[in-house]
Nucleic acid binder design. Sequence first.
RNA 1: GGGCUUGUAGCUCAGCUGGUUAGAGCGCGCGCUUGAUAAGCGUGAGGUCGUAAGUUCAAAUCUUACCAGGCCCA
Length: 962
Amino acid sequence: MTDAKKDYRDTVFLPQTAFPMQGGLPKKEPELLARWQRMDLHGKLRGQSAGREKFILHDGPPYANGNIHIGHALNKILKDVINRSRQMMGFDAPYVPGWDCHGLPIEWKIEEKYRAEGKDKDGVPILQFRAECRAFAEHWKTVQAEEFQRLGVVGDWAHPYSTMTKAAEAQILREMYKFVDNGLLYKGVKPVMWSVVEKTALAEAEIEYHDHTSTTLWVKFPVVKTACKELEGASVVIWTTTPWTIPANRAIAYGDFAYSVLRVEEVAEGGIAKVGDVLAVAENLQDAFVQEAKIGRVSKLAVLAKDDLGSVVCAHPFRGRAGSDGYFDYDVPLYFGDFVTTDAGTGFVHIAPGHGEDDFNLGRKHKIKFDETVGDDGRYLPNVKGFEGLYVYKPDGKVGEANGAVIKALLDAGALLAKKNIKHSYPHSWRSKAPLIFRTTPQWFIAMDEKIAATGKTLRETALESIGQTGWYPGIGENRIRGMIESRPDWCISRQRAWGVPIALFVDKTTGDVLRDKAVMNRIAAAFDADGADAWYARPAQEFLGNDYRADDFIQVFDIVDVWFESGSTHAFVLESGVWPNLQSPASLYLEGSDQHRGWFHSSLLESCGTRGRAPFDKVLTHGFTLDEQGRKMSKSLGNVTAPQEVNDKWGADILRLWVLSSDYSEDLRIGPEILKQNGDLYRRFRNTLRYLLGALNGMSDAEHVAVADMPELERWVLHRLHEVDASIRADMAAFDFGHMLQTLHNFCNTDLSAFYFDIRKDSLYCDRADSLRRRSARTVMEQIFNHLAVWLAPVLCFTAEEAWLARFGDDENNSVHLQTFPAVPAAWRDDALAHKWAEIRAVRRVVTGALERARNDKKIGAPLQAHPHVYVSDRVIVTLQDVDFAEICVNSSLTLQADPAPENAFSLPDIANVSVVVELAEGRKCERCWQVLPEVGSHKDAPDLCHRCHDAVTHSGQAAA
RNA sequence: GGGCUUGUAGCUCAGCUGGUUAGAGCGCGCGCUUGAUAAGCGUGAGGUCGUAAGUUCAAAUCUUACCAGGCCCA
């Protein structure tokens, strides 16, 4: 033959596209963001979908006090994918992002700044302080908005909501007034951690634990009433680390374990017990007690169990005390407490409901009456007769006289058995470092179990009903929030703080009643409309009260409302307000981390049930938390933190989005370098599929289109798959099952397209004449694949799908994949019989590829085009395969199908019966253009290296596609 | 300590109401291709289903305990 073979590369239609293989996302994504901004994508979306059925995902507001972390990214990405997919399913899905701006963490930041400047918060005018808090929140709101948008989140970023706007503050107040109107708001008391130095309550996070030396006491409480003979004339022994709480004692708690009744037979040196005393203590603490109390010898009279103690009533050790005017003459009953342990003490816990959490709860459970005993300055109040005015802690934080006075009184009463100093961990103020006390304070509550006049139901009942009417995703969320609502106490909505919305009420100084005058409340709310909540601090009380009342007769309430009440009211000042006319209430969906069963879902549910009688949402979806690759919590000290900003810069936001959707977000999600790399690989498959399609569609025009009926079976099978995939992923999107959707899409790209359809059609695409029916059919179908795939991927890979879309349709600024809806799939594409047939074809093909692999290992062949498989199958299968070009399907140059019995050495697969393959070399020479090995090559004098097809194609090259 | 919850190949996930040798994709090894080429195709090796008991003819799937996580409380 000729020496120099002709190079036919230029006559082959190789894929051509400007869409690069490498994403370069960190650089590309900001460009696309700027483009969306320029073209006002969000505005176009809204305009385009006006009038459609609405889907309202109401944003739960993040707290504006720092950069976003990976958990924020997870949350916002998930919301964005849901919004985008609903939009593309044909809904109008407007999204208004929001921020939670009031609250303690921001106050702390400003206080911290003051401390650094040597200033004291209390010396700063409150309006100035609030202004600084506002500026701080505003700053972080701006930062977070940037960071969220970088993730590709589309929404009304120009008009977000926040809890600190005037309109929001005014509406929050109006929501509170609704609870005044419906009678659920009441004033009660609650024990809090109190600093007598700062005269303020402290939140959990403001408390530091340091060692502190406390005087501990063992004290007798004489039994005065009991059904248990063994306890007649005996005393119950309690142990306390806070002697000053003894005057506030109202009960004694016992546990579920054995108690001994002991008779003192002998007192050791220094002991103050008396011979003949009969004392009850927990059995396994009795030895320690006997030793501490310096009791020489005891005899055990009896052992009692939990049930023996239920009916016991003691007297307070100060009963009948001179100078107390009978103040202590009440009964001290015994109650079971599940918090009682035998770690230390006597197994009996003295209960002062005003001075401890467990104490308060037990008191509430048994409706124990009690007084406030200690004032905000740390002194006993006047009602504590005989002790009034004594300091528990002095204003300088030092121990006051109260302990000493109590100990002396106990000694006088003969009730003290022992005392001892111990060093233990004790709560202190983070500011003054002074020790704290538990103290009841007046607070505002929303009642859970009072009937609302309008409905005749309690808030708890209404909330529980609403839970049943809400769709919970995953379903287990319902159990969780139901349990919480069933068991929660009344909602304490007041805080003694500065940065928030004041509970703007007036309380009558003489009656203690809340002023419920509509005119006054309206004036206050109007002032909030005009000036925000600052009005409450800036304007004189008389201005609100008008001419009907005198400011001197009322106490103006300066407590602020719990921030959970604020965010629980977002449905009112965002969805219902009319400020965003796109929105409506109730929301279709609330979506947050599973911690919000206790937080935002919970407070929104209660707020809305109390004011509107139903939940503000139809569905609630929760996601898990982000952990590192080992499933551990992320922390700076472990060095396992993945920051979204870093992922954006290294991989791109599309990879982060892919990570969210490829994970099972209903559980906790893991993230780290390996998982990101994996998602990078996953991404490449999607990107390359789009890229191959773009390359294959180079120069495609409508003139090339082929009617479905005229297409080869392979193309019609692909259309069937499009139909199938479309149905599957629409169902997935509706059910928020994006993991399954992504898997379906990935398998489609991977298994159906890349490894099967594209692999087979490469030959036709590259080498057939441009006007051939086969090639035109392939391009017609590939156009459909592209149009579907790009749109299917758009909610998840919002940047890449757009990039591909523009590469195909031009970057006219009105153009965007995000303005598309999922294209309709003609029902005619579905062909179950064809699908069944092609499933069988692919099964036989697997045996062929297996045989080719063995031939390759035997060095018999290299590329599949060198091979000519002899395929031995049953008559039935021959019928299946006879009207398709099975050589083409297996990417071989030629192939023989035969129904003969297979030779001994034929290749077969265990799971595919009656199919065996023997691989031979294809006969003939390699066509230099299409690389098929065919006997005909050499028969054309003018082109001795070409097969018939290629000769024809080259001869008619003028008709080649561009 | 309590409530809810999770634990299947290196990774991300399927495995419904218990029933043949536990699946997929990725990654990894090997081979092919060099006309999707920092790509494509084929193929192979990976799991005592957290551990231990129990129920059952039969358990990843049911029960109990334990271990290791997570969220929310205390």
